[in-house]
């Protein structure tokens, strides 16, 4: 078994330790004997989406995001075909904002890919802090750190999770991120997968299923990862519902 991860434009979009997510995907595949190939693409590279199993797009500063946006506009139809074919996409922060129709900062309108029916607009101040979110498809919360000026509105889409602590998409509707087909968008940057091995495995599982491998992933010893997850949950969202997570 082999999966190919396409890391889009890491030279531009590499804020806040996105490297940890790629490392996590790679290691968790290797530990199960699944070969993991990582291809890093630069703006001038031609990307063959049909060869990819997981596409990763990270966050960047506004300046860098604008550069990426121009390039993504040129390959828009290839990306939407990939998503239509149940391709797995993990898009974080700036990458997440680019999936929608547009991202408006001050007077500038950055056109997005319109892969999801969402839009992002600036708001008063940045939304910064730890986040705990509960999904309806994983057995324990997803934790992370958000830092974004944009407020994302996802319309009728399903959020990745509901916010137990933190701001999430827009600080208003209680949703965090988006889950659309096999596309995950989220504001939780940096080491999302290292601290959420269950979410990382979900992504690997979906990529395997798409290639016709239906077997469940072999369990790993996640004591260390889950301790980091449980610490954030117990510190910021210690509700009775989450008690079992601190085990």
């Amino acid at each position: 078994m082999k999966l190919k991860i396409g890391h889009l434009y890491p030279e531009l979009l590499n804020l806040y330790g996105d490297r940890g997510n790629i490392l996590s995907l790679q290691k968790r595949m290797q530990w199960r004997g699944i070969e993991a190939e990582v291809a890093e693409y630069t703006l001038s590279d031609k990307i063959d989406f049909s060869a990819l199993d997981i596409v990763f797009v990270g966050g960047g500063s506004d300046r860098e995001q604008l550069l990426v946006c121009k390039r993504l506009g040129e390959i828009k139809s290839e990306i939407s075909d990939y998503v239509g074919d149940n391709g797995v996409v993990v898009a974080i922060c700036g990458g997440y904002q680019l999936l929608g129709h547009y991202y408006k900062i001050k007077d500038e309108l950055i056109e997005g890919l319109s892969i999801i029916d969402a839009f992002t607009e600036g708001g008063n101040g940045r939304l910064i802090g730890n986040v705990v979110a509960q999904t309806d498809f994983l057995d324990r919360p997803v934790v992370g750190f958000e830092n974004h000026g944009g407020r994302t509105h996802i319309g009728d889409h399903k959020p990745l999770g509901s916010v137990l602590f933190g701001s999430g998409n827009n600080g208003a509707d209680g949703g965090e991120g988006i889950l659309h087909k096999n596309v995950i968008g989220t504001y939780l940057h940096g080491p999302l997968f290292p601290k959420n091995p269950h979410l990382c495995d979900y992504v690997i599982q979906k990529a395997l299923e798409r290639r016709g491998f239906d077997t469940d992933l072999a369990p790993l010893d996640d004591k260390i990862e889950l301790a980091a997850n449980a610490y954030i949950v117990s510190r910021f969202a210690p509700s009775p519902n989450n008690c079992e997570c601190s085990a």
Binding site: Y16, G17, D18, F145, G190
Partner: peptide, 9 residues
């Protein structure tokens, strides 16, 4: 800094 994501860099 509340965010320690940088340890991954």
């Amino acid at each position: 800094g509340r965010d320690i994501s940088w340890i991954w860099d």
